[in-house]
Write a protein that binds this DNA or RNA. Structure first.
Lengths: 233, 233
DNA sequence: GTGGGATCTTTCCTATAGGATGCTTGCCTG
DNA sequence: CAGGCAAGCATCCTATAGGAAAGATCCCAC
C-alpha cells in the first residue's frame, strides 16, 4: 500500500499544511487507494506524507464529520466501509428529494446566463483522451458531479447545495463501477434536465431529474453482484 | 468572558478528551457563551478548559465541519456570525423540505410502539421547575428538538435524520429569542403532527409538519427587530 | 489438549517547545 | 498633518517526546 501512495503526495502545498493533508487524504479515500473498511494508522500515514501526526489528526477529524472515516474511541480511525444495499437505497432516496427540489428551484430562479451555462454543461462529454478503464470512469464521474453541482449552485440555496455535495462524497463509497456503454444515456438525461430548466418549468425539471436519478440507480445496481464480498455487518 | 466559562467545564469526562472538549465547546457556542462572530483563541481556550491545545484544535476542526465555527487560513478560528434574514429563510426552506418528508415517512413506516412514543412526546410540556427566562427557553428548545429528532428516527433514514440534526445546530445560531406566551401553540401543532402519524396518513403528516414549521418561522421573525445590529456583511 | 492469565508490543492520546507568519503600533518622512 | 514603513508582539502552526490503554501472543496449569 505504501508504494501506491508514495509519489502522489504533496500536490500543491496550499496555505496551510492541514488543508493540504485534508485534500490529499480525501483523494486517497475517494479513489480507494485507501481501501474501504481498513484501519488507518496515523503515524504511518504521517510518515508517508512526510508531515507530523498533528495535521493528520486534524484532517482525519474533519473527514470524520464528512463521513469518509470513522473513529472508534480507543482503537483509531478506519475508512468507512462500502455502502450496503440498504444504505445505497437510502442515499438515492435522499438524492431524489434534494436534487428534485434543486432542479425545480433552478428552473424557477435561473438567469438567462445560468440557463446557458447548464445547457452547455449538459452537452459536455468525456473526451477520448481520458483513456480507458479507471481513468475514463474518474473523468465521467467528475463531469456528472459538476453538472449536478452547477444546478445546485443556480438553485440559490447554500444549505441545499452543501447537502447535495455531502451526499456526493458518500456516493464515492460505492464500488468503483460503471458500465461505460451507458454513458450516452446519462448525457441524454442531462440534456432533458437542462431543457426543462431552460424552459423555466419547475415541475418538468423535477420530473426529469427524478427520472435521471432513478435510471442512474438502476445502472449502478449490478455493482452489488460484481464483488461477492459485501460490507462487514 | 473567561469568568463565564469557568465553572461549567469538564462535565463528565468521556472516553476521550477530544470528545469531551468537542461537546463542551459546542455547548459554549450553542448558548452564546462564546458570542457569535468572535475570535476564538486556541491557547486561551485550552488554558480555560485545562487541557493542551491539541485536543482543542481537533475539536475545532470538527466544529468547522458542523458549521459552528469558521477557520480563516492564517488568522485563526471565529464563531459563525448570526443568521442573516436570507440565511434564516433558507434554513426554514430546507426544514420544510426535509422534515416534511420525515413526517411522511414516519406516518408510513412507524410501528405501533413508535406511534405511541411520538404521541407521548407531543404531550410533553416544560415543567414549572424550569424557572424563567433563559432556563425556560433552553428547556423548551431541547423539548422541541427531541420531538423533531424522534420523528426523524422513526422515519427510518439515517441520512435524513443526520441532515435534520445538522440543520438544528444552525438554528441555534439564531438569536436566542422566543416568546414564551406562544409555547402552547407549539404543543398543539406537535399534537396535530403526532395525530396524523398515528393515523398513518403521510400526506396529512406532511401538511401538519409544514404548517408547524411555517408558524414557527413566523414566531421567530420578531427576533430580527429585537436587536438593531445585524450580522456583519 | 484446552482454557485462562499475564506479559509484551503496538498504537493512540496528550503535552510541551520552537519556528514562522500576520497584525498592530509607533515613528519617520514628505 | 497624512501616508508609508519598520519593528515588536501575539497567535497560529508544526514537530517531537512521554504516558496510557487495548489487543495479541505466549506460557502455564488443569
Amino acid at each position: 500500500m505504501t508504494e501506491t501512495i508514495r509519489g502522489r503526495i504533496r500536490p500543491a502545498r496550499r496555505l496551510t499544511l492541514t488543508e493540504d493533508v485534508y485534500e490529499t487524504i480525501k483523494g486517497l479515500v475517494m479513489d480507494h487507494t485507501l481501501p474501504p473498511n481498513e484501519r488507518v494508522n496515523i503515524d504511518a500515514l504521517a510518515r508517508e506524507l512526510d508531515v507530523s501526526p498533528t495535521p493528520v489528526r486534524e484532517a482525519l477529524a474533519r473527514l470524520e464529520s464528512d463521513g469518509l472515516v470513522r473513529k472508534r474511541p480507543l482503537s483509531g480511525y478506519t475508512t468507512t466501509p462500502l455502502l450496503s444495499r440498504a444504505e445505497f437505497d437510502d442515499l438515492f432516496d435522499m438524492r431524489l428529494l434534494l436534487e428534485g427540489d434543486s432542479a425545480a428551484r433552478a428552473a424557477a430562479n435561473a438567469s438567462t446566463a445560468n440557463r446557458q451555462r447548464i445547457s452547455t454543461e449538459a452537452d459536455a462529454t468525456v473526451g477520448v483522451e481520458a483513456g480507458d478503464g479507471y481513468r475514463r470512469h474518474a473523468a465521467f464521474t467528475a463531469l456528472d458531479a459538476k453538472f449536478h453541482d452547477l444546478i445546485a449552485e443556480v438553485a440559490g440555496s447554500a444549505l441545499l447545495r452543501e447537502a447535495i455535495t455531502r451526499l456526493h462524497s458518500h456516493l464515492h463509497l460505492h464500488r468503483l463501477y460503471f458500465p461505460a456503454a451507458q454513458a450516452a444515456d446519462t448525457t441524454v438525461e442531462h440534456q432533458r434536465i437542462a431543457a426543462a430548466i431552460t424552459l423555466g418549468d419547475p415541475e418538468a425539471a423535477t420530473a426529469a431529474m427524478r427520472d435521471h436519478l432513478t435510471a442512474a440507480r438502476l445502472r449502478h445496481l449490478p455493482a452489488f453482484d460484481q464483488m461477492p464480498s459485501g460490507p462487514a455487518a
